Computed example of a mutant assay.
Amino acid sequence: MTTVLRYAAFTTDPAGGNKAGVVPDATGLTDQQMLALAAELGYSETAFLTAVPGTADRRYQVRYFAPTLEVPFCGHATVAAAVAVAHAEGPGELVFETKAGTVPVQVAEQDGVLHATLTSVEPEVLPIGAEEVEQALAALGWAAADLDPELPPRIAYAGAHHLVLAVRTRERLADLAYDFDGLAAFMTARDLVTLQLVWRESETVFHVRDPFPVGGVVEDPATGAAAAAFGAYLRELGGAGESAELTLHQGEDLGSPGLLRVSLVAGDSRVRVTGAAVPLPEAAS
């Protein structure tokens, strides 16, 4: 029988954050079985771990499935999976081999709660055409005048591709009722996993939302992969120094608040994302 663990990531409260499934031993599971299990759980992603034998470190092959498809990388399921391993084996260093590349993860205890810090794969920030931005805005029901001119649209990557759209006001961010099928088609054509919708509260504090229709989910409550991509985006645009600590609030508009810490380190282009994770009451099945 396959063991399935259930965690809430980027929160210390099981009622908050983003829920993830974790299969600590996916040995022998087929792609179809993993997809079916992820669909049955219904979380935005489920992480499937297979230990890599013959290595000196704690190294796992990890695959991530949403209810409708496999994604190359998922931040909140990485945090959940790393904490799940640490609950079984103790905190410390882990290495996750994902389809996006190698992701080191450090798990440490803070105030009685386990926190995981993932280090992204090499990030990239790409331009996007004005016509494509118009199409995305049309699907969202937003106008070009809603956008923050100081944070222009870009496609950002740190394991998965995300379209970053920043708005002028918190009220605009809160008012989200988009065309699910239209946005899914737009994103599928451009290999986008989520849209990273952003409002800047201060130089280092941001509120974000992430529609995820390509995964069969209206909205992701806390998105570590997009947070890593956003860190790279902000540094690329000069909105953060070579070293910076950013705070991202996500999930408040869904009644499931999460907290993501993004770290930029001088001399290292990769981005670090930190969050807590806690087991759900029905943690195993």
Rank of each mutant, 00 (worst) to 15 (best):
Gly141Lys: 12
Ala144Cys: 07
Ala144Met: 05
Leu147Asn: 09
Pro149Glu: 05
Ile155Asn: 11
Ala158Asp: 06
Gly159Leu: 03
His162Gln: 11
His162Thr: 14
Val164Ser: 04
Val164Phe: 02
Leu165Tyr: 12
Val167Glu: 07
Val167His: 09
Val167Arg: 11
Arg172Ala: 02
Arg172Tyr: 00
Ala174Leu: 00
Asp175Thr: 13
Asp175Val: 02
Asp175Gly: 10
Ala177Ser: 15
Tyr178Gln: 09
Asp179Thr: 05
Gly182Tyr: 01
Phe186Glu: 03
Met187Lys: 14
Met187Asn: 11
Thr188Ala: 14
Ala189Arg: 15
Ala189Phe: 06
Thr194Val: 14
Thr194Lys: 10
Gln196Val: 02
Leu197Arg: 09
Val198His: 08
Glu203Pro: 05
Glu203Gln: 14
Thr204Cys: 09
Val205Tyr: 04
Val208His: 04
Asp210Tyr: 10
Phe212Trp: 05
Phe212Leu: 13
Pro213Phe: 04
Pro213Ser: 13
Val214Met: 08
Glu219Asp: 08
Gly224Gln: 07
Ala225Arg: 03
Ala226Phe: 08
Ala228Lys: 03
Gly231Leu: 00
Glu236Pro: 01
Leu237Asn: 10
Leu237Met: 09
Gly239Met: 08
Gly239Lys: 12
Ala244Arg: 06
Glu245His: 15
Leu246Gly: 12
Leu246Asn: 13
Leu246Arg: 13
Thr247Cys: 02
Thr247Trp: 08
Leu248Trp: 01
Gln250Leu: 00
Asp253Leu: 04
Asp253Glu: 11
Leu254Trp: 05
Pro257Phe: 00
Arg261Leu: 00
Ser263Tyr: 00
